[in-house]
Nucleic acid binder design. Structure first.
Lengths: 344, 344
DNA sequence: CAGCGTTGTTACAACGTTATAAATCGAATG
DNA sequence: CATTCGATTTATAACGTTGTAACAACGCTG
């Protein structure tokens, strides 16, 4: 059995081990380790060297236990949604910059939102950031009675008491996509929607109003879709059997768009030559070299920053009620799946 | 400002609030909350009701701080790899069943393995499960000197002192794929490899030896690939420009296979009619209705279970050295991208 | 009814850290 | 030389929980 640390008894070294080694008191060692001002340069160096030698590492639990503030923000995300991966990454950065740590809790087929939230609460998070939560609004309000809660990408109407919302302007995103397609000369633009998924209603609305704005109300056409490749593929197959095929498709999200692309490919309908396709999210899928999907960017960075700053405002008392709902403007990323229609 | 809890001062309720409310002592309340045997049914009920009333929730940090055992296993995973998502989900289940909790720490473009591990250590995990770690073996050995470390899917040769390995039999998986293709009548089977990615060398070896076993040594052909769709697409393009096109392709993983499929589709080469494609991992990508990729299943459940039981054995003293490397046998999942070659 | 084991409950100390206040020290002041 | 000051260091007490050991109350045996 190999020795597991530089301290004799095999335990993980503690502050008092460190202090003993450096020949100083425990509080002084603590001050050095957390970079507080006070210790002299000499002590500082001595302690740091000792820390190096015995492999000391602060115990964040004890640390958090002691200080009433935990500076810990819980993040609930869905393992199956690539967009959440982008968000989590951005959240690490945003929280770090604001001096907060993140505790992750995943939702998956075999792990409910309920469980995910329970563990975050047990971990003593000061606030929760929930990525597209599905929990009923009442449940969110109940949580918000205990601690600040931010719902990302899920709109709440009416705003549940105490729950903040940070989301992209989905309607505006859809509008931009339609504008782009119309500018290229398209008129027969179909929207494959997301059903009851968060954001789907807004995207539908944005699509419709943009079409109307361009005088294309009679060309509005919605096809039921969903969040996955399979939904997109199914919707695309519906379009194929149609007599009047559209010249452009706006899909609910990138996944869905990929399903559409794939189906068209199989049917030997060249994209974008015969039909243009636009996605939504700008997930890494869209950026793949062989896909190069034109899509509406959700600005994960921005969303993450706003969510964190909202949380910080709540926790540190700078929260104002006019920011209960933060809406970030998305922007269209034009790649290679859109161009002017061939038979215009 | 709404009240945030049922306790007057607005703080989160503690065990002593609970005890006061229930009219019992703090230790008794503690025993009830953690389900220890001892308290009478009456006390139990009284405490539980009080907990309900004031919304008490145990503070896991204080809990862990007190008990020397933390029953916490740190898991490092990569947000960008879908296979890791499957593993994380399976790990939640496996750890829960063994009475352990999981702390997640993500790796991403802007977050290094180093950072991920640092936070897990600070959180006082008792052991680490690292999903395909890229850190040098020396670094892993260094970690293993502090606590049990399991490397999942990344083989270590020679076994680093104290680091356990749990992985799929990549060579065996590749062999199964080749056997399947040969049984269908294929001879010109190309392997698009994963370069230096974990497992790539084994898969290459398995491919080669299986080909040899079938007397197809002269048909062995390796094309440099990688882990992403783009790698697969690039490799497929190489194949297309070739004079002698293979009748089957074994890709390094599902992502790569999807890139291959896509490229063939664009080139109007029907799969599986003209060419068969096999992936690796059986990630959810492979299961998509419009993909239906034949692939080698990695058995995330199994891997997770074995990783956790390995960790538990180490922590609870049942570890034997003959299990330093656990190899799980993968199995081929036959879907719709393979069939007999057309010109056999 | 003394002695005993059971059952339920409690007091106390500890986990590793940090906030607070108090102590030490040399130097500079009056 | 006593005093005050700033800079550094230290003692002490918490944070919320749990393990240990001690304690009370009870019915039982002999």
């Amino acid at each position: 059995m190999p020795s597991r640390s530089a301290v004799p008894d095999g335990k993980r070294p503690t502050l008092s081990d460190l202090a003993a080694r450096a020949g100083v008191s425990v509080p002084l060692a603590s001050m050095v380790m957390r970079g507080a001002k006070g210790p002299s340069a000499a002590s500082r160096e001595r302690v740091l060297r000792a820390a190096q030698e015995i492999g000391y590492r602060p115990d964040s639990r004890a640390r958090l236990l002691r200080s009433s503030r935990s500076h810990l923000v819980g993040v609930q995300f869905d393992l199956r949604q690539p967009f959440h991966a982008d968000m989590v990454e951005a959240l690490y950065a945003a929280a770090g910059a604001a001096g907060y740590q993140i505790a992750l809790s995943a939702v998956a087929a075999s792990r409910s939102e309920q469980e995910a939230v329970e563990t975050l609460l047990a971990d003593r998070c000061e606030a929760l950031i929930l990525l597209s939560p599905h929990a009923p609004a009442a449940r969110l309000a109940e949580l918000a009675a205990q601690l600040p809660v931010v719902s990302v990408a899920r709109r709440l109407r009416p705003l549940a008491e105490g729950v903040d919302v940070v989301r992209a302007a989905d309607d505006e995103g859809a509008r931009q996509a339609v504008d782009h397609l119309v500018a290229l000369g398209h008129r027969d633009i179909v929207h494959i929607d997301g059903g009851r998924a968060p954001g789907a209603a807004d995207r539908r609305r944005g699509y419709k109003s943009a079409m109307k704005h361009h005088g294309l109300t009679s060309h509005v056409r919605l096809v039921p879709g969903g969040l996955t490749e399979d939904h997109g593929a199914a919707a695309a197959r519906t379009l194929l059997t149609d007599s009047s095929r559209p010249t452009a498709v706006l899909a609910f999200n990138d996944h869905c768009a990929i399903g559409v692309l794939d189906t068209f490919l199989r049917a030997q309908i060249p994209v974008p030559d015969e039909i243009s396709v636009v996605g939504f999210d700008d997930s890494h899928l869209a950026r793949l070299a062989h896909v190069q999907l034109t899509t509406v960017g959700q600005e994960a960075r921005q969303l993450a920053r706003r969510a964190v700053s909202r949380v910080v405002a709540r926790l540190e008392g700078g929260a104002t009620d006019d920011e209960r709902e933060v809406v970030v403007t998305p922007h269209l990323v034009i790649r290679s799946t859109t161009r002017e229609p061939c038979r215009s």
